[in-house]
Computed example of a mutant assay.
Amino acid sequence: MIDTHSIMYITNRPDITMVSGEGSWLTDNEGKRYLDFMQGWAVNCLGHSNPGMISALEQQARKVMNPSPAFYNEPMIDLANLLTDNSCFDKVFFANSGAEANEGAIKLARKWGQLHKNKAFEIITFDHSFHGRTLATMSASGKPGWDTMFAPQVPGFPKATLNDLSSVEQLINENTVAVMLEPVQGEGGVIPAELEFMKDLRALTKKHNILLIVDEVQSGCGRTGKLFAHQLFDVKPDIMTLGKGIGGGVPLSALLCTDEVASFVPGDQGGTYNGNPLMCAVGISVIQQLTAPGFLDAVMAKGAYLKNKLLKLSDELGLDGERGEGLLRALKLNRDIGPSIVEAARLMTPQGLLINAPRPNLIRFMPALNVSNEEIDLMVDMLSQLIAQAPK
């Protein structure tokens, strides 16, 4: 029994402690190994204990850890340039979490609205979306029940329906400054935006002179097989947020925008650890590895491999198929057994399996982007046993 009495209770956790990890595997305090297809909810894009990230962290720690955000530092500059060189954006603000990046995007859009849209402030978001756990980002989210959890909400976030352009158009008025969406709704059940919808949405926002914000906290940084998920649709947003994968396991996020939208002035935005050189050094290693020749092509191939394995499993067990992009995928179950499958997977012996059920009838997969086909095969075999044994 481990003594956890000093840890604030916010979620149910099993009575184990994770003590080490390598690649796609985690090991607990009792020596049991787990095949990790959650990877910190898509955070560890290069798996556990990535050598390049460790080296970057060690080297930067010997130089300077925190010179203060009042000064430039080399990793901050280099990572910002790396991101703009590989995207359609011109300016970068670094933060510590996806929620903080999204909070910054909301502030930036409202500031732009004050200057260019007669103080317009409303940002259209979507049902079942997830943008973070600050008050503003919870209000922006379309997660059921969140509108009353810490009421009253922050106003200004009318909700549309993903892949329904008319639902967006009906909400546009003189107060609308932006539309904000996840190219793939992760927490909502791994629901991808459709190609035609994304292209038409970009055209609609341009028609009304409002901003398009893509929240790529979960879907960005190679997760879909493209460096950024919006590249799947060949659209150019005005603002993008990154988190999770950009740090590969350390607390790092980013807010990116075009020159036309960059409108903050001193005092508008900041943060004690924003642009921290220790975190940015790791981020450089992550992005360099993701943009290495052939890496994203391999992610796309592994995503297709996982998709085909899940479809075959679905056919064999009479399930409802799968959906997703790249290595962000979900298996659609034909009954509400997701949470029980997740628990049974962790308890498997001699080695466990770590997966996630964002909805009772879904299993979500967010493996390391360098996962092997053999590890995908093993995961599917383990999952097949669990579902076959589950109550009908």
Rank of each mutant, 00 (worst) to 15 (best):
G222W: 04
K206T: 03
G220P: 02
F197V: 00
N209G: 03
P237G: 11
G222I: 00
A229S: 13
F233D: 12
L201T: 12
F233A: 12
G222D: 00
C221M: 14
I213V: 14
T205W: 01
Q231I: 08
V217L: 13
R202K: 15
L212S: 08
T205G: 01
G222T: 00
V235H: 10
R223E: 06
I239P: 12
I210N: 03
H208N: 04
T224R: 00
F197N: 01
L211D: 03
K207L: 06
I239C: 07
V217N: 06
R202P: 08
D238L: 01
Q231F: 04
H230Y: 15
T205R: 00
I213Y: 05
S219C: 12
I213G: 10
K207A: 03
V214N: 14
V235A: 02
L227K: 00
S219W: 11
A229G: 01
D200A: 15
D215W: 07
T205A: 03
T224A: 07
S219H: 07
P237I: 08
G225P: 02
C221F: 09
V235C: 08
N209C: 01
P237Q: 07
K199T: 12
C221L: 09
Q231K: 14
Q231S: 13
K236A: 15
F233M: 13
L232M: 10
G225N: 03
D215R: 08
K199L: 10
Q231Y: 05
L212E: 05
A203V: 14
G225Q: 01
D215Y: 04
N209L: 01
F233K: 10
N209Q: 09
L232W: 08
E216N: 10
V235R: 11
V235L: 02
A229V: 00
P237F: 04
I213E: 11
V214K: 05
D200M: 12
I213P: 09
V214E: 10
L204M: 09
D234Q: 13
I239G: 01
D238T: 00
S219Q: 03
A203K: 15
L211A: 07
S219K: 08
K226N: 09
V214I: 14
L204T: 06
Q218C: 14
G222C: 00
P237E: 13
N209K: 14
D200Q: 15
V235P: 03
Q231E: 15
P237S: 11
V214C: 15
K199W: 09
L204E: 03
R202I: 13
L227T: 02
Q231A: 06
F197T: 00
T224N: 02
L211K: 10
N209F: 05
K226F: 12
C221W: 06
K226I: 02
K236P: 02
K226E: 07
L232V: 07
L204C: 09
K207W: 01
